[in-house]
Simulated scan of single mutants.
Amino acid sequence: MSATSGEKATPVRRFGKLITLRPEHREEYLRLHAKAWPEVLATITACNLRNYSIFVEGEVLFSYVEYIGDDYAADMAKMAADPVTQRWWRLTDPCQEQTEGAVPGEWWTPMREVFHHD
């Protein structure tokens, strides 16, 4: 994001998170994400998330996303309140299991960034 007319640019915040994929739901999870619903994708964008990716290795899912807004908590509350996203989560959440390092109030386990290079 660039600053114009003296506006202060909001710095991009990067998030890496982990969760475990339940092996018995693996194919369902991959099928859902191969054809993610357009309404869910629009909500992700409307909530100031960019470059959202989910990677899988064995039973581990790793997500990476960049946040470009100025109120992460409000944007995440907006996403959580979206009825279509709630329906999506009702399908995807049973495919996942929290890791041992899960934080109360977070479904995916947040990771600490230890290196970044632009």
Rank of each mutant, 00 (worst) to 15 (best):
A36P: 10
V65N: 04
E57I: 06
D75Q: 10
W37D: 15
T109N: 01
Q86N: 09
A81P: 09
S63W: 06
L91V: 04
I19F: 02
V40W: 13
L30C: 00
T99W: 08
G69P: 03
G69Y: 03
E59W: 06
R90W: 07
Q96F: 13
T10K: 11
E106P: 00
Y67I: 05
A3D: 04
L61I: 15
P94C: 14
N48G: 00
D70V: 05
E59L: 07
V60P: 01
E28L: 15
Y64P: 03
T85P: 00
G101W: 08
K78D: 04
D75H: 09
A46L: 04
E97Q: 15
W88Y: 15
P23H: 05
E66H: 02
I68Y: 02
A73H: 07
D93L: 14
T20L: 14
G6P: 08
Y64W: 13
K78P: 05
I68H: 09
P38E: 12
E59H: 13
E28W: 03
D75W: 05
L49K: 01
M76N: 02
L18H: 13
L91R: 15
W108D: 03
S5K: 06
L18D: 06
L41G: 06
A36K: 12
V40P: 11
T20R: 14
A80S: 15
F55C: 07
R26Y: 02
L49I: 01
E113V: 10
R31P: 00
A74L: 03
V114G: 08
V103Q: 03
E59D: 15
P83S: 05
E66G: 02
L32W: 11
E113W: 02
Q86A: 15
P38Q: 11
H33C: 10
D118T: 06
A73Y: 02
M1I: 05
H117I: 11
W107G: 10
K35I: 10
A34T: 04
V12N: 04
G105D: 10
K8L: 04
A36Q: 13
P104A: 05
H25W: 03
L18V: 11
L18Y: 13
E106A: 14
N51I: 00
Q86V: 14
I68W: 03
V56A: 08
I54Q: 05
D118V: 05
Q96I: 12
H25E: 07
A102Q: 06
Y29F: 15
P83A: 05
A46H: 02
I54E: 03
V84N: 01
V65S: 14
Y52S: 06
V40Y: 13
E106M: 12
S63R: 11
R13I: 09
Y72P: 00
C95D: 05
R14M: 04
V56W: 01
K35N: 14
L18T: 12
F115E: 10
G16Y: 13
F15E: 07
D118K: 10
D75T: 09
W89L: 15
E97T: 14
L30S: 00
A73I: 07
R112I: 08
E100W: 06
F62S: 11
R13V: 11
D82V: 06
H33S: 08
M111Q: 14
P104E: 10
K8Q: 09
H116M: 03
A77I: 00
E66K: 02
